[in-house]
Structures are given as structure tokens and as C-alpha cells.
């Protein structure tokens, strides 16, 4: 068992987590968030991108108590404490779903799809959820 200290990792990798699924239809979004927290706790350079139905993960006012699931949307607010500030939402995905940035529960930057293409190229690894 290892626990991280205050020291950053010696050779941090650029890791991008691509979130494409709606929040409660599968366990993938939760697993992605766990992986993001773990990677950042180990000092990796983490970028988080929400694309397609993935943007629904960030909708405010989620309350899954009646469907008896955990409200993991509350965990997004901890990303700042974990040092994850590179959070992007693909613009047309948000627009197609009739949502705007002020309906999202954390500050995210809008990104165009061609910018996302470049962002993917810059990474050491891309994890798709």
C-alpha cells in the first residue's frame, strides 16, 4: 500500500480522460472520476474532457437518491482540491443538448472539436470512458 505525499511525481505524464457517457446509465462515469482522482493524487498532469452525452455528467441539481445511486456529481467540486483545473466541455455537445455553461456544476472551458483533436495529440495517454 502506498500513499502519496506532498511531493509531485518525478516524471508526470500528460493524461487526458475523455468522458462520453451520461451519468447514471452505466458505471463508466464514476470509474472515470475515480481514475482522475487517483491519477491527480499521484501527481500526474490531468486533463478532463466532456463530449457527447458526457456533458450531462456536469448538469447541476442532480439528485439520484430515489434511484438509489450515489450522487457522484458532488465529487466534481473536489477536483480543484485535487489540483485538476484543466476541464473542458465540447461546445457543440453542450449546445445540442440545450445546455449552457451556467447550468454546469463546476467551471469548465468550452472547446471546439478541432481544438479537441489537437489536445488529444498533445497527450502522453488518452483514457476513454
Amino acid at each position: 500500500m502506498t500513499e502519496t505525499t506532498e511531493q509531485p511525481a518525478v516524471n508526470p505524464k500528460k493524461l487526458l480522460f475523455l468522458n462520453r457517457k451520461a451519468p447514471y446509465g452505466s458505471s463508466l462515469p464514476r470509474e472515470a472520476l475515480d481514475a482522475v482522482l487517483m491519477a491527480s493524487a499521484f501527481g500526474q498532469q490531468v486533463t478532463l474532457v466532456f463530449l457527447g452525452d458526457g456533458v450531462f455528467q456536469l448538469k447541476t441539481q442532480q439528485d439520484p437518491s430515489e434511484i438509489e445511486m450515489k450522487n457522484f456529481s458532488k465529487t466534481f467540486a473536489a477536483l480543484e482540491l485535487y489540483g485538476v483545473s484543466s476541464i473542458f466541455v465540447e461546445q457543440s455537445s453542450l449546445q445540442k443538448r440545450g445546455l449552457t455553461l451556467d447550468q454546469l456544476l463546476i467551471p469548465a472551458k468550452l472547446i471546439q472539436s478541432h481544438e479537441l483533436t489537437e489536445l488529444l495529440e498533445e497527450q502522453d495517454q488518452v483514457m476513454s470512458f
Binding site: T5, A41, F72, K74, A78
Partner: peptide, 15 residues
Amino acid sequence: QQFEIAPAMRVLVKT
């Protein structure tokens, strides 16, 4: 209560 997770060490120290 606030975040639905227990903090990692680095985050605990910070908090």
C-alpha cells in the same frame, strides 16, 4: 458529506 469521497493524503493535508 460535501464531496462523497474520502480525501487522498495530499488533499487531507491541504484541507
